[in-house]
Structures are given as structure tokens and as C-alpha cells.
């Protein structure tokens, strides 16, 4: 279980995170939503230790991650899969090698077992045909899927996906959302998805955390968002598209 307590983080003069406290629901999908630049990626990177918060606690099952040594962190990181906003696939490796890499670091499988497992994960994301391609030969959607396969290949307890469907067409987005939600229930991971896609919020948003200018502004489920238009920042964010604005006007919400 991941718990954040009073996290603050500044880059230079700029205060990016202010007093963030939250608890992700274990074994389910958790969504971090918010406008561009609101600090979503920074939260995720603080949790996994890529940024050090200025103050506050990050607890993995009641152990404070912030104060751990490199080796202790490494142990926790075995349980973390991370899909980066830009996929961050290793350019010099093939798709298969990318997916095998976390296993090389964290497991003692033989080379053959690793290959088999990596193939299995690539099958899960429907990329069996792409084993020997290099990242530069993939489309954006394929990269995300390889990124997901790599993130789950170390069988993580915690899966972070930073904008898994940004830059993808609506259909591919839906496919990726379904894939992540299927993997979450199959592998029983605690999944944290960063997104500003309202489609995702509506389809997989049981637990939503709305970040506004570095603060946790609201949390609840997608159903509550619809029934709770009184929060101005939230409804501005949710009904940002002109299409929704029109619909909203029509039905007098």
C-alpha cells in the first residue's frame, strides 16, 4: 500500500507540490488527473524516488521510502513498474531485449526463461510480431504497449503509467485502458495512472485524485464527479472541451 503524507516539492524557487497527502487504493486502478503542469508526473517521480521531496513521507506498507538507502530502495523498486510519459524505451535494444531488461536486473531466470516470459508479456500487449524491431521503428501506440510490457515484466506490485494514452487515437486509447485494467485485475497490481483523458476517467475511474496547481483539490469516484459540479476547478477541468460545454448547457447542469 502506498501512502503520501504532507509532500512538498520545489524546483528552485518554484513550488510544484504543496502538502499532498493521499492513499492509493491497493489492488485497484487509481487515477491522478489534472491540467498540464499541475505536478502529476512530479508526484509519481517522488513516489518512486526519482525526485526527492523537500519534506513529507512516502510510505510503502508503512516503511518510509524517503529515508531508505540505495539497496533498500532497490528492494522496493523490484515491486515497481513504470511506464514513462515518453515511453523511455532503450534505443539500443530491440523490443524483446527491452522487455527482458528488468528481469535481468531483478530475477535469476535463465536467458531462455527470460525470453519465454518476455514473449508472453509481448503477447499480452499484442506485439508478438515486433520482437526484433528497434524502438525507432515503432509507432507511438506500439511504444506505449512495449513500455507497458516492460513495466509488468518484473511482476510488480505497483504499476505506474504516466499518460498511457496521450497522443493516441481514441480507439487505441480505449484499447490501452482496457489492457491496463485487465492487467491490474490479472496481476493484482496497485495501478496508478496519470491522465488528462476524460474518457479514461469515465471508464476506469473508480478512484480519482484531482491535482490542481500542485495541491490535491478533490478525490472520489467518476460517478461522484458527475454528481458534484459545485467544485469550480474540477468542473472547469472536466468540462473543458467545447463539446461538453455545449452538452452541459443543453441539459442545464
Amino acid at each position: 500500500m502506498i501512502t503520501l503524507k504532507n509532500i512538498y516539492k520545489s524546483f528552485g524557487e518554484r513550488e510544484v507540490l504543496k502538502d499532498i497527502s493521499l492513499k492509493f487504493t491497493p489492488g485497484e486502478i487509481n487515477l491522478l488527473i489534472g491540467a498540464s503542469g499541475s505536478g502529476k508526473t512530479t508526484i509519481a517521480k517522488c513516489i518512486v524516488g526519482l525526485h526527492a521531496p523537500d519534506s513529507g513521507e512516502i510510505l510503502f506498507d508503512d516503511q518510509n521510502f524517503v529515508q531508505m538507502t540505495f539497496d533498500q530502495k532497490r528492494k522496493i523498486r523490484q515491486d515497481i513498474g513504470f511506464l514513462f510519459q515518453g515511453s523511455a524505451l532503450f534505443d539500443s535494444m530491440t523490443v524483446l531485449e527491452n522487455v527482458m531488461f528488468p528481469m535481468q536486473m531483478f530475477s535469476d531466470y535463465s536467458k531462455v526463461e527470460m525470453k519465454d516470459r518476455a514473449s508472453e508479456y509481448l503477447e499480452k500487449v499484442e506485439l508478438s510480431h515486433a520482437h526484433d524491431l528497434f524502438p525507432s521503428e515503432l509507432s507511438g501506440g506500439m511504444m506505449k504497449r512495449v513500455g507497458i510490457a516492460r513495466a509488468i515484466s518484473s511482476e510488480p506490485k505497483y504499476l505506474f503509467c504516466d499518460e498511457p494514452n496521450s497522443g493516441l487515437d481514441p480507439q487505441t486509447s480505449v484499447i490501452i485502458d482496457e489492457l491496463i485494467s485487465k492487467l491490474t485485475s490479472e496481476l493484482k497490481t496497485t495501478t496508478i495512472i496519470i491522465t488528462h483523458d476524460m474518457n479514461s476517467v469515465m471508464s476506469i475511474g473508480q478512484n480519482v485524485f484531482f491535482i490542481y496547481k500542485g495541491e490535491l483539490n478533490w478525490q472520489g469516484s467518476n460517478k461522484e464527479i458527475l454528481n458534484n459540479p459545485s467544485n469550480k476547478e474540477l468542473s472547469d477541468f472536466v468540462y473543458a472541451s467545447s463539446f461538453l460545454k455545449e452538452v452541459r448547457k443543453k441539459i442545464n447542469l
Binding site: 524516488g49 514513462f84 531483478f106
Partner: peptide, 18 residues
């Protein structure tokens, strides 16, 4: 430098690599 800005170095760190 490219590995740094495309988060490949972050990805290595997450996977417990120095």
C-alpha cells in the same frame, strides 16, 4: 544526453540500476 531527456536514465534507475 538523449537518454537523460527521454527519461531512459530514469527508467534505468527504476529498474535498480546504478
Amino acid at each position: 544526453g538523449t537518454m537523460r531527456i527521454t527519461e531512459q536514465i530514469d527508467a534505468l534507475e527504476i529498474m535498480g540500476v546504478n
